[in-house]
Simulated scan of single mutants.
Amino acid sequence: TTPAPRIAVIGAGPGGLTCARVLQRHGIAVTVYDHEAGPDARDQGGTLDLHEDDGQIALREAGLLDDFLRLSRPEGQEMRQMDAKTGAIGFHHVPGDGERFKPEIDRGLLRGLLLDSLAPGTVRWGRTLRSVEGPAGGPRLLRFADGTAVEADLVVGADGAWSRVRRAVSPAIPRYTGVAFLEAWFHDVDERHPEAAALVGPGSAAAADGERGLFAQRNGGDHIRVYVVQRVPADWIAAAGLTVRDTDALRALLLDRFRDWSPRLRRLLSDNDGPYVDRPLHALPVPHAWEHDPSVTLLGDAAHLMPPLGVGVNLAMLDACELALALAHHDTVGDAVRAYEKTMLPRSADMQRLLDGAAEGLLSDEPHEPDGPYEPDEPDGPDGL
């Protein structure tokens, strides 16, 4: 009897957890390793829209679609595109009754749904991967920062933009796109920020003037997140003699840069609660591919990091679902990985080409709806490469 393959998924984000859930539904053992100390170690980011033709397909295979629809916010599909100088609404999409094409859900809520669906002990927290060693044919040896090591017959890199698993199959490193987000939070908005609540509504609101933009999203729990979008050098804050902790000085700088904008929109720069978060946008080279390796593969941002224009988490979850199904329906791990990559790599290459340079589109006054930017899965970010 051939022993069951030892499958290790690195990264407990939506992609890695979806892969684990679908594998377990098919009776396949899997272990997920994540560098965070636990599921509540940090804020999980903003809100996501899961599409009927990819993210929701993955949730259906995971047996979680009904739970997702119960937890999601269909009203979050509302979208307002506003004139930067006047604040007037130029484009306004209001979802119809029963519209479920891409309802919103907070990242943390989605992660909790997936975590609760897994067998106890599936996720090993506090395990920061340092290296993937061993021959291409396997088994692979995973070495962690705490000094532990485990063997695996298949290593799945679901560890995001700065993936350490990627290094085992590809030398590619994400490159700065030239566009950066500065994230701002608003809490208890209906009571404390009624003007922002009315401006954004139940979904999203955006404005741009070709050089800079604002994108605001209603989150669950009476929160709004605003992404200040700028075409700037990656070190623009340091170049101004500031750090991200200099909230008042950064606010003054932003208000000057947006001085010609509508006063209503400028309130999204001046009234936020707490400090800003700097999120420069990166993307992998286009297209990104690697030679087939039967013991290592990638999914989501680890495989095809792109500008955050509404496809990232959806593709990650679809990748994860398809990889898990391939493992369930092929005789060997190598055959499964080859079948998965035969579909995933061309699809992601097509999407990479479509979105290459599209970070600039976030500065356009045309309607657009970005994802909240990826959360780096390495605690030290790109400097830890």
Rank of each mutant, 00 (worst) to 15 (best):
W125R: 07
G126M: 14
R127T: 11
R127M: 15
L129V: 13
L129Q: 09
R130L: 15
G134R: 05
G134H: 09
G134T: 04
A136I: 14
G137T: 03
G137K: 02
G138F: 00
G138Q: 00
G138V: 00
R140G: 02
R140Y: 03
L141E: 15
L142A: 12
L142C: 06
L142Q: 06
L142G: 01
R143T: 15
R143I: 13
A145H: 11
A145V: 10
D146W: 15
T148C: 08
T148M: 05
A149L: 12
V150Y: 09
V150H: 10
E151F: 12
D153C: 06
V155T: 00
V156A: 03
G157F: 02
G157E: 01
G157N: 03
A158Y: 00
A158F: 00
D159H: 05
D159A: 05
D159S: 05
D159T: 01
W162L: 13
S163N: 06
R164W: 03
R164G: 04
V165R: 06
R166L: 01
R167M: 13
R167G: 11
A168H: 04
V169N: 05
S170I: 07
S170Q: 08
P171R: 01
P171I: 01
A172L: 14
A172W: 11
I173L: 10
I173E: 14
P174A: 09
P174N: 04
Y176R: 07
T177R: 07
T177H: 11
T177P: 10
G178C: 04
G178Q: 02
G178I: 04
V179C: 12
V179K: 06
A180Y: 05
L182Q: 02
E183V: 15
E183G: 09
A184T: 01
A184K: 03
W185L: 12
W185A: 08
W185I: 11
F186A: 03
H187M: 07
D190P: 08
E191T: 15
R192N: 00
P194A: 00
E195P: 06
E195G: 04
A196D: 06
A197P: 11
A197W: 07
A198P: 12
L199R: 07
G201P: 03
P202R: 00
P202C: 01
G203A: 08
G203K: 04
S204A: 14
A207K: 05
A207S: 10
A207N: 04
A208L: 12
R212I: 08
R212E: 09
R212M: 13
R212F: 09
G213H: 09
G213F: 12
F215Y: 13
A216H: 06
Q217S: 12
N219S: 09
N219K: 06
N219A: 10
G220D: 14
D222C: 02
D222R: 03
D222W: 04
H223C: 11
I224Q: 06
